[in-house]
Design a binder for these strands. Structure first.
Lengths: 207, 207
DNA sequence: TACTGTGAAGAACTTCACAGCA
DNA sequence: TGCTGTGAAGTTCTTCACAGTA
């Protein structure tokens, strides 16, 4: 299949969220205009995004809400559950483990790792914190598909290298640093300092 | 000045981070090649990004690390401190308040608001949680420049509307929903579900 | 010589506009 | 008629390639 841009994929996530909302509201049909308005984009963009994957609508009518939801979930690979490991039992890690939004969408944080002996053995919800040295042996027994790096920046690259070695292909990185990785590994960065600095840039003219 | 794209602004943040690293390492001069390599971009991109704002380098030599750092901080508006209010004293909020990366870069979380009476009055570090109804009167006395929305999705839009009413022009939104806002207000979204779903999409071919 | 700064070329993304179908 | 699906046009972003200079 043709390469889909990241912006398209992100918009698809948005459509999915809106569709679920429409579904809860009992709406059965939706037009590209409605999706565009609520999703901060244009009707043409919505139709183009969807058209990369097929023709899901009915001309003159719009899209069936349930059908399109189903198809989008399928396209995004959200029909399955993912086992997620969290590396770094700090403040961000703690917030992530407790966040309902993950498990609700099929992302289960099944293990937490840290190198701080005082944290190892403590329980976070129903997940025990394990020493990061157990990573290799644990994953050999119970594989995961996604890893979240929430370590200090100084340890992030070494952590990623180990994850790559273990065959992990998808990583969410909260450490505020650019990580090197093979092309077949996807690394998504969440960097809150960058977001705030972008706001700072936007404010520079406001005094 | 010509409109600068968001991708350029985000790359500038990256260059700044690298420059600070180079500075700590005692490097005095840096080339676009070096910045590109470490910042996952191309030398031409680095030069183009910088050229929007002026000619900071010396041909044949490269850029002076200190000078370029200074200029980038200036361009990004990072020469001043920002007063930040956090609305929503939940898990994410708690992680954010404790996160050193913010205050280190001049973003000071000076107040926390929630509508849960059991949280109001408790202390988070050196910041007391206040009832969200005090928002208007508090900001009249001690203005802020940036607000962080960390409320449930259901309350995010109403919260943003109040912030806009109060004249806030920059908002960081952690609620997993698209918010409507006037064009002169900048809203940056951090949506961890979208990041994970992007990873899910990337994994769809891996089985 | 080594590297910047930049117009021009190229690629990617978005919007337009309309044919085609329910 | 109303709304989708899509080639074509338009716009924005990235890369190229080279003139210019310390």
């Amino acid at each position: 299949m043709r390469k889909i841009s990241e912006s398209t994929v992100r918009r698809l996530c948005g459509y999915l969220r809106l569709l679920e909302e429409f579904q809860r509201a009992g709406k059965t049909t939706v037009s590209s205009d409605e999706l565009a308005l609520r999703g901060h984009t244009t009707p043409a963009q919505v139709r183009k995004d969807l058209s990369f994957f097929g023709s899901f609508g009915k001309r003159g009518l719009g899209y069936d809400v349930c059908d399109l939801t189903e198809r989008l979930r399928d396209i995004m690979g959200l029909d399955k559950n993912y086992r997620v490991a969290l590396i770094g039992a700090g403040k961000i890690g703690s917030a992530l483990v407790q966040y309902r939004g993950f498990s609700d969408r099929g992302f289960d944080i099944v293990s937490v790792y840290d190198n701080d002996e005082t944290k190892v053995g403590t329980s976070w919800g129903d997940v025990a914190v394990r020493h990061v040295s157990a990573l290799e042996s644990d994953l050999a027994v119970a594989p995961i598909q996604i890893a979240i790096i929430a370590t200090p920046a100084s340890e992030a690259q070494a952590t990623l290298d180990r994850l790559v070695q273990l065959g992990i292909k998808a990583v969410l990185n909260f450490a505020p640093t650019q990580l090197d990785h093979p092309a077949d590994v996807t690394v998504q960065n969440v960097n809150m300092a960058v977001e705030l600095e972008t706001l700072s840039y936007a404010l520079r003219s406001c005094g």
